[in-house]
Amino acid sequence: MDGGYGYQNNSYGGGGGGGGGGFMPGETNSPSGGKGESNQTLRPVTVKQALDATQPYPEANYQIDSADASTICFVGQVRNISSQSTNVTYKIDDGTGEIEVKQWNDPSSADSMDTDEAKEGDDGGSGKPKIELNGYAKVYGKLKSFGNKRYVGAQVVRPLTNINELHVHLLEAAAVHLFFTRGPPGPKTEAGSGGAVGKGGEMSMGGGDYAAGNNKALPAMSPVARRVFNLLKNEPQSNEGLHMQLIAAKLNLPATEVSRAGDELLTAGLVFSTVDEMTWAILEY
């Protein structure tokens, strides 16, 4: 099941094809013939995900959310450009972290990089837009490390032609992260169609608790956190959510207990802060 995000057999865009996840043809990493790399993946990520990726053993593909990420793509602002005789090194910052990106001038020197596609990222004499300092760029490449320092061996580095690409990419990275950590989206469950609403406003089906409008079971939480969650889920409110003091008044609970419950829900990723740290709203998922 691809869950609607273009994932098939842990491969974003169907194992390197150009049709999945909104990628244009020619922008993905296709395995070179005869190399035996049929299980290629292309994954949209944030820089923090790239820096936090794990490697089960030397020479293995890096993994993010326990899934192979042999080739990654991300979008960020170019903070530095360093040109050498053999390569160009960029520092890319997407707001979650900063990472070095190394693009070889001689494609044959770049490990596991496809020659033709590497040439696509070279602007020399082609008339294409160039990568500019403090501009935004999209990077396709492989995670590597040297001397315990993580970097990306780039196959393609191209400037953004529309800033909306940045926003779309971050949404894609979030959607794929949720796919691997929480599973594909399921059908919505509504009261009166197989679900029952309990006295406290909790949705139950077969004894389980479910997040707002979703069949994903809620994590274990304290009784006070559950009461706060149910109030946030069912109380009429604006997009700003409810302030901690108002929640305490409505539940007739001490503000300190409500504050601890809010921290618990924030840590579990069930609510998020809005106008200030003490105003919370339900995170729909």
Rank of each mutant, 00 (worst) to 15 (best):
S112N: 14
A255M: 04
A110M: 02
Y12M: 11
D94M: 05
V271C: 08
P254L: 04
G194N: 07
D94A: 03
D2I: 00
G195R: 14
G207Q: 08
K119H: 11
G183S: 10
A174N: 15
L246D: 14
E190Q: 11
R150P: 07
L160E: 07
D94N: 04
Y5N: 13
G262W: 02
G34T: 07
V197E: 15
A211Q: 14
V168M: 10
Q49R: 01
G16V: 06
G21Q: 14
G195W: 06
T256V: 07
L253S: 09
N230Q: 12
P107Y: 04
L265Q: 06
P44G: 05
E27V: 01
E98G: 00
Q49H: 02
G20Q: 03
M24L: 13
T54D: 09
Y285W: 11
E240V: 01
F229Q: 11
I72W: 01
E202G: 07
H169R: 05
D94I: 07
Q8H: 10
D94F: 01
T115Y: 08
G127S: 02
A137F: 00
A255Q: 14
P187A: 14
A137P: 01
T274K: 14
G269A: 09
T161Q: 10
G76F: 01
F272L: 10
V157K: 05
S83M: 07
T89C: 04
D276A: 03
M278T: 11
I131H: 03
H167E: 08
T46R: 05
L242M: 14
N148W: 03
Q55I: 04
Y57A: 15
I131W: 01
Q8L: 13
D116F: 04
G15Q: 06
E240P: 00
G20C: 03
K216Y: 10
R79T: 06
E132Y: 00
D68L: 04
M244K: 09
N39I: 00
